[in-house]
Design a protein around this nucleic acid. Structure first.
Lengths: 187, 187
DNA sequence: AAATTCTTTTTACAAATGTTAAAAAAGGAT
DNA sequence: ATCCTTTTTTAACATTTGTAAAAAGAATTT
């Protein structure tokens, strides 16, 4: 049962039986730096939790690689627009560095919801949190300047140290050149 | 039990007992055009479903009124960042036109989750949908031009007919002046 | 260590959007 | 219908961001 994310305990405590059932549909996977975890165009059938490392959700817009989301140690990563609709998505998931993660099979998970009320609750709470994160991100994209967004990123994360700037630029909704300019003003 | 949103039936069917319990914590409220439904700075303790009308979530950024979200007939409207954290929020809710809505008391609702598994599931599914909407909105804000965002809005909604442009502009992340210019190019 | 590749910065110019103010248009009130 | 208020458009100019290309810097491979 070492394939149950430790962070889950802090969110909602589930029964021993539930843990066993959850463990049975979870597995630990390891990825190299830059390795693709889920390809563009696939359906999201896995809930990932990062044990150690970093990953991003990305897609292509007119040939440009755009990073929509970053996830780090102990964070959940899913392509919600596919997981919760069953539709394929044009987004992929990629490891940014050497990454070890727990992969939970989503169809099995949804089946467990019927048998284990506490599992459903745990994941309800998990995704409510994710939902709140996306709402906050809208706020920042909607009416902050690129400079403000970059400053916030500096304050709230240590992203800049470990992640290529090209990924960060598109995450902020700007080009690499623009981010480079903003960084120059910070010195 | 006419205070249970009809749309709920299409999402997940709950038991008669659950409906009764849900009905007991729900009430119908009516608002005038421009009337404030929830003030800025409050905690979100209500899940609203619009029966008829339109409402928006808004906040102030450096004195400017910014619309973050619109909701219309049969749509849910909540300030997620407060509802799911318990924290107060700097966002408010306002009726854009004469609006009738169903107000579900959130603390009571969360209590019902324990007794009625099907109510928890219904609302899990409801908020998963909302979550997916916010993810799609990030996509549009992150790397579409203002013109693209406006074009999409025209295609997918009839917002422009009934809602002041000043609200739409900030929703798109641009100024009124800029939106007016974009509209001029569309003719 | 040199060569190669990838990433980041810089430059110059173009396009998009913001700001301020005024004019025009639309909507409500009397 | 006229007046008053609010909303939308237009104009002129400033600022920000994008684009393309080159240069500089890091990282990786040989």
């Amino acid at each position: 049962m070492d394939n149950i994310p430790i962070v889950f305990n802090q969110i909602y405590d589930i029964s021993h039986a539930a843990k066993k059932a959850l463990s049975a549909i979870s597995s630990i996977k390891n990825y190299e730096k830059n390795e693709l975890i889920q390809p563009i165009g696939s359906r999201c059938k896995t809930v990932y939790v990062i044990k150690k490392g970093a990953a991003r959700i990305f897609y292509l817009k007119e040939g440009n690689d755009i990073t929509e989301h970053f996830a780090f140690d102990n964070e959940v990563i899913v392509r919600a627009e596919s997981l919760f609709t069953g539709n394929p998505t044009l987004k992929g998931i990629q490891a940014i560095e050497v990454t070890s993660l727990i992969a939970i099979d989503a169809p099995s998970l949804f089946t467990l919801y019927d048998e284990y009320h506490d599992i459903e609750r745990l994941f309800r709470l998990i995704f409510e949190k994710e939902y709140v994160h996306t709402v906050k991100r809208i706020e920042s994209l909607q009416f902050q300047s690129a400079t403000e967004r970059y400053a916030d990123l500096l304050e709230t994360t240590n992203l800049v140290d470990k992640i290529p700037l090209k990924y960060i630029a598109s995450y902020l909704g700007i080009t690499q050149v623009s981010l480079s300019r903003i960084r120059a003003n910070f010195r």
